[in-house]
Design a protein around this nucleic acid. Structure first.
Lengths: 285, 285, 285
DNA sequence: ATAGGTTTTGTCAAGCTTTTGTACAT
DNA sequence: ATGTACAAAAGCTTGACAAAACCTAT
């Protein structure tokens, strides 16, 4: 699929196909809410850009969450992302973060994160700094290049920052999502990052954390009328053993699984998120 | 029971339910002894406050001890506590925090903590709000009165707040203290609280968190030239098994143990902190 | 800015679904108790915000505890939580703080600071939010663009927060620093910020506040065996007159001067901090 | 404790308007 | 492609009603 970067190249039929919205409706949205402002061909045909595809998709997302068309359109327009701000080199920051954490230097690690937060969005900070660092840390740990003390020290600090960003994520109007790690799972950082990213997209988060029995996940989902249940798994074996119960749970709630160990569930017909948390949160919305 | 702050919010039926006195009788007590002086709604309905509930309860107690109604009323009125919890007394806040966390209501829980922080020091907030709540939660959990979901939800939020207060605790010139939970131990909230309290007294904190092998504790202590190593233990059995190694560690660093399961170490000649984390942190400095 | 929860986006049906309260009842609550004050679409449809969802939920909670509708509504309105506000860049936060303070909106101002504190370190919060704002306020005041009322309102709130952060700064084992404003000087906010930053680096603070005679400063420094004396000056003239005495003081203690009016002292061979308080505190440690 | 009247509050209905996806004619 | 039309769905206002909860006075 050719990358439709800057200017108008899509005709209305193609936009319709890609966005899943009928051509008539697209024209109506344009007329009534000014959702799109396509260029015109010499003969008067509408020509849409890649940004337009995104805008229509946002509109559909908002419709799906229950907003009425006029409001959904206004929001979709307002959310236009201006342009990714040039950060001061994610790679440098990542290296500095790694170095600070490796030398038990909390203040410096905090400063690096502060710097990243000042320069970009939370999303980008997560996707470009925290999550890659965690990945790298995991790899190094597997190769025996780091000690548990370092790993613990680093997660303590990152957990604090992530939970700080998470403050208030239970507030508001969005649909609720229950987040938990499967029984015996302790790694919650990716899950928190996922929650923060979901939150930024309007969800309301109910966070249960590591090592949560499925019974109580269900209880929480019921009590909070959650529209989504996200379970994180690090180790495939544990997931395999739980597949029947997970399937039952999926019958009663919209269930998604994530984390490095979630793969086995896919074969069982369950929804598995494979990418990085931020991207998946974006896709879910 | 819920808040019901200053002014009249209860109608007579609800007061009746809460005090266990029939509505007719309440009106009679008002007329005859002036026990209550409720506000009135625009339409003339009586509106009672939380203090009124207490006054009626006192009245009942006095009746039960055999006083005549008139005397009981007089007494109940005279006993009015001048400052009956100015809406943010520790007890009230604690109840409200418990209520918020029990109903998966993150924003309210955060608001309660904010309120406490605005009114007192971090030390007091920890000692009077967070730690007692954790204690209570533990008790309730043991009695099967709460579910794991609630316990997880609550610790997630409290951990976030504590780690927020902890931010920057590695900064400075003070002596360093290494904090960790013993292997297999997951409960780190008390340990973090201890760290925060230590920090407020000038220590520099290196926090390793839950489930940390002794090897790596020692490694971190060496690398950071720590003057103190604090290990937290929830279950006595685990401590017993580790006593020899702990003793060796104590030979090389100033070592203290804490948490509900640390007792067995005392017999082995190790230093054990028995009180609440804040008090112990104060004593250490 | 993805989640624009501030504005009205929900129609009554959706609010009904999310809050579990029928549309008729929502309208009744609005009419009878003014619980909600939705915006209106061009055609007159009610448009609700995320805060409205929360308010309805609070109302339901109070109803569930037995309050009658009128009282439940009054309470739900009174309990308004300051602001949800999704994660933001420093610049945005600063603008929002300025806006809140300019409109005498204390809760919102507090919420902005809360948010900043949740997401970053105290250092960064000071350096990126509070101090730049103070600078800006000073400039505006000089240009006559703000009134004394605003200036007082703003400093009152900021002083409160800073002193909140300062709580306990006299505690601990670090070296002591005496902080004071020169005689006749009233502006202490920068000085307090400096103290907070010093404290974060392990110093013990002895704070004497505005308009302190030099005699008193010296006495405090002697009694507390301070390793550092920091004096703040806003107006150069006052400093000039005091140079001889300051020089004498510098002979007995390590003395530094700060604030916009400290410059003249430099010529006299005294140490003057010119940068922002946080950076200077870092440099001193 | 009862009687007789009032207030409060959730629900419903009638009649009309707005919104919005789709269809059709030019 | 444009403009108009249309009908279903969702909202709005006004008014009313009945059950529950309260009031005063006896």
């Amino acid at each position: 699929m050719p990358d439709v970067a800057g200017e108008g190249v899509l005709r209305i039929g193609e936009l319709s196909k890609r966005s899943g919205v009928s051509a008539e409706l697209l024209r109506a949205w344009e007329r009534r809410y000014g959702l799109l402002e396509p260029q015109r061909s010499a003969g008067g045909l509408r020509l849409y850009s890649g940004a337009d595809v995104d805008r229509v998709r946002r509109m559909r997302r908002h419709l799906a969450t229950g907003l009425a068309a006029a409001e959904a359109a206004a929001l979709a327009r307002r959310e236009e992302t201006p342009a990714p701000a040039p950060a001061n080199s994610p790679a440098t920051l990542r290296a500095e973060l790694a170095d600070a954490l490796a030398s038990f230097d909390e203040p410096r690690a905090q400063a690096v994160i502060d710097q990243a937060l000042a320069a970009t969005t939370v999303d980008t900070m997560l996707a470009e700094l925290i999550l890659p660092y965690l990945h790298e840390l995991g790899d190094r740990w597997q190769r025996g290049e780091t000690t548990i003390a370092h790993e613990h020290f680093a997660s303590g600090i990152l957990r604090g920052r992530l939970l700080g960003l998470a403050r208030g994520w239970g507030l508001g109007m969005g649909p609720a999502a229950v987040l938990a790690c499967l029984p015996a799972e302790q790694h919650d950082l990716g899950l928190i990052a996922f929650g923060v990213a979901l939150r930024a997209r309007g969800w309301r988060i109910v966070y249960l954390g590591p090592d949560t029995p499925l019974d109580t996940v269900e209880e929480a989902a019921r009590e909070t009328r959650a529209e989504l249940v996200m379970l994180s798994a690090a180790l495939p074996e544990r997931v395999r053993a739980l597949v029947p119960r997970l399937r039952a749970l999926a019958g009663r709630h919209r269930l998604v699984l994530g984390g490095p160990g979630a793969e086995p569930a896919r074969a069982a017909g369950l929804t598995v998120l494979a990418g990085d948390p931020v991207a998946e949160a974006a896709a879910l919305s």
